[in-house]
Nucleic acid binder design. Sequence first.
DNA 1: AACAGGATCCTCT
DNA 2: GAGGATCCTGTTA
Length: 198
Amino acid sequence: MLTLCRPVLEVAPTLLGAQLAAGGVTVRVTEVEAYAGESDPGSHAFRGRTPRTEVMFGPSGRAYVYFTYGMHWCLNVVTGPDGEAGAVLLRAGEVLDGLDAARQRRPGVPDRDLCRGPARLCRTLAVTGEYAGADLLDRGSPLRLLAPPTDPDRRLVRTGPRVGVAGAGAEPPWRFWLADEPTVSVYRPAVARRWVAT
DNA sequence: AACAGGATCCTCT
DNA sequence: GAGGATCCTGTTA
């Protein structure tokens, strides 16, 4: 049973091994990142509520979907109590079911790369802004999150800094992944901010 | 109304 | 390893 209404750093590792189903494809989540709310400079919710981030302040279990770099969608699971922002970015997964549909959406891509990265995962599952706000725990939702068959083995959980996030430091470790998983995305440090002379 | 930047990915070298 | 694609979002004027 998934309990999402808790602090995001507690919830994040419990999502490893969970199953995400959308667009006729089911994946096993292998990598996630936690984003706290207004206290977290790396979070979109850092500067408070906006139309885009509103869902993050709502009840847990809903989908926060955002668009970036002109062509990419990324999917988060909202966590924490109503009124408090928090979300877990789903960064990578292993396709368990619907492999034909997945391959069809990503021609020429090796199976291990189908969901290796947050935007790739969304593309393979055909997740877009239309899913924003969807209740991930509701049966009948087009976008569903199912608890792991068994709780993830703590010994297999690895932690590290978030990918591409400059705003927050490396502590606490916000990123969680499963050891020895070839589908885990490649680490990239945040790009150095261009210095603007004044 | 205009602008700068981005929780990325792909291609090319 | 470097650079471009491409457009939504929040901020500023």
